[in-house]
Simulated scan of single mutants.
Amino acid sequence: MKPSTSSMGEHRATLRRGIRRSSTRLVATAAFAASTLAACGDEPPTLLEPGDLSGAKGDARDAEGGIPGMPPCRTLRSLNQDLNLQAAGKHTGTEVRIDGGGYAFAVVFAASATQPSADEVVADIPTQIDECAKELQDDANRQVKPISDLPDGAIGYKGEEGSVATEYAYVATDDDRLLVVGTEHPADNRSSVSMSSLLDVALKHAPDVTAG
């Protein structure tokens, strides 16, 4: 005896409902698995970890725009802005808050992002500092001076403008990338993070960090 047409239609409808329910469960299971993997996955390495720096606090955050802050003169501001623009996103940076107010940062540029080379950029920093000092020589509210106690190969400066102090250091990494670190803090307080320790930490993490 053949099943009736209505029975066959009901059977097909039941099958379709079952398939839809199975598909929905599969999609939901896949989505849950993906979200679980993402949650459990390792965070990408960063140049700075607050736990590595005495005087740092809170969580690290991305320095997405490149080198932050405002040096006290047009010469050094233009230097940092030109490096950021030339990189066109081929950089990776980290900022952390520091005790006493302000922040510390580190930014590494891809080797292809700096023209001239990282070594040439660093070699030209003393000239840039001298130009800045000339620019500020008649301005009692602003000043700049080189930082002397930095690791070999690094060149930096400290600037002050009113109540704000900024410090920057530039160094070429072993793989020919430009690494820039610095702090911004109240001028009447010494930074709670030293530039030498900041460089040491950033140089230690730099080989694991992809720029851009």
Rank of each mutant, 00 (worst) to 15 (best):
E43C: 03
R97P: 03
L26G: 08
I147Y: 05
A123I: 04
L76R: 02
T173I: 06
D52K: 09
P116K: 04
N141L: 13
G93Y: 02
V122W: 01
T24Q: 13
A38G: 07
L26K: 11
G51R: 02
I129D: 01
P207D: 01
T92R: 10
G55Y: 05
A31R: 05
A123K: 09
A187F: 08
V181Y: 01
R97M: 11
P146Q: 11
D42Y: 05
K2C: 00
T29L: 15
L37F: 13
G212I: 07
S6L: 13
V108T: 14
D82T: 13
A187P: 09
T173D: 05
V193T: 06
S78D: 14
H11R: 12
G41S: 15
L178T: 01
G156T: 00
K204Y: 05
R190W: 01
V180Q: 04
T75Y: 10
E49F: 03
L136Q: 12
H205P: 02
Q81R: 08
A34K: 04
G51E: 03
Y170E: 02
A110T: 03
N84C: 10
Q86W: 02
D152V: 08
S197T: 15
Q143P: 01
K134A: 13
L179K: 02
G159K: 02
S4K: 09
E161I: 00
M70K: 12
A165F: 05
G101S: 10
G18M: 12
N80L: 03
A165P: 00
S196T: 15
A39M: 14
H11T: 09
D175C: 05
K57N: 10
C73R: 01
H91C: 01
R61M: 14
H185L: 09
A123V: 00
A172Q: 07
D52P: 00
Q115T: 14
T173C: 04
A63P: 05
A38K: 03
E167C: 00
A63H: 05
G65P: 03
M8H: 08
R25I: 14
E95L: 12
V180L: 06
K90F: 11
Q128G: 07
G66N: 04
C132A: 11
G69L: 07
R20E: 05
D130P: 01
D130Y: 00
F109E: 07
V121Q: 02
